[in-house]
């Protein structure tokens, strides 16, 4: 089911075009990979959908309506930056999100924290970068959103944490929601994607069903990625 559609979505910063006429359709029940190197426009795109950036031009429709406060409540965005205060504990981070988001489920949060081998009494200031990344993910995944946008969920994360994060994403994905994951770690992500969207210099250069693309081109998404972005 079609949930989000963008038409010619464009974002300029001065004379720099970060996102350039992007047309995307996201359907419920699917996991999407927004793939491209650093600076290709992945974060800018997500931030526009999250309502953090105003598009320079173009449209965004959520279930046929213009993006509004209501639809924003259904969209969960996890930025690459850590956004917690050092004085907080893991528990406080949960309370903070509970205040902010109506769809935040504290029991679910506690479960995720346990799955991630974190502790409710840990202080944010004492977390390693990998632990901070897991905390960020738990706080996002404890929501009951329709669209989850995770910006570089695997950055700076060791192998064990990577598995924990992948499991959390797979468990959360359902018929009723959408996962949009940005990454340049294609090899890790490839097997969990339904659809891939390659973005290069702000433009979409290739998109479609991951399995079909593999069959059609006779190569893995990783190999295709190298081909598209090396040139």
């Amino acid at each position: 089911m079609k949930y989000l559609q963008t038409e010619n979505l464009t974002k300029k910063f001065g004379s720099t075009v970060a996102v350039d006429g992007v047309n995307v359709v996201l359907e419920k029940g699917k996991i999407y990979g927004l793939l491209g190197p650093n600076g290709s426009g992945k974060s800018t795109f997500m931030k526009m959908v999250a309502g953090l950036f105003h598009p320079t031009s173009g449209n965004m429709m959520v279930q046929g309506n213009k993006l509004s406060i209501l639809s924003k409540g259904e969209i969960a965005f996890m930025p690459t930056e850590a956004y917690f205060y050092n004085y907080m504990k893991v528990r406080t981070v949960g309370e903070f999100h509970e205040d902010f988001y109506e769809d935040f489920d504290t029991a679910k949060y506690e479960e995720l924290i346990k799955d991630m081998n974190l502790d409710m009494n840990m202080k944010v200031s004492a977390l390693s970068s990998g632990m901070a990344a897991k905390l960020k993910l738990a706080a996002t995944m404890a929501r009951d959103a329709k669209l989850f946008m995770l910006d570089e969920p695997l950055n700076g994360i060791d192998l064990i944490a990577r598995d924990q994060i992948m499991s959390a994403i797979i468990k959360k994905a359902s018929e009723d929601n959408i996962m949009l994951l940005s990454s340049h770690l294609i090899d890790v992500l490839e097997n969990i994607l339904d659809e891939v969207i390659f973005i290069k210099e702000g433009k979409i250069v290739l998109s479609g069903d991951a399995e079909e693309i593999r069959e059609e081109k006779g190569k893995s998404i990783v190999d295709l990625y190298k081909e598209v972005f090396a040139s």
Binding site: S167, I170, K171, N191, I192, L193, D194
Partner: peptide
């Protein structure tokens, strides 16, 4: 899907 780290639709 979790066991093999694959997409739930797969």
């Amino acid at each position: 899907a979790v066991e093999y780290n694959i997409n739930p639709n797969t």
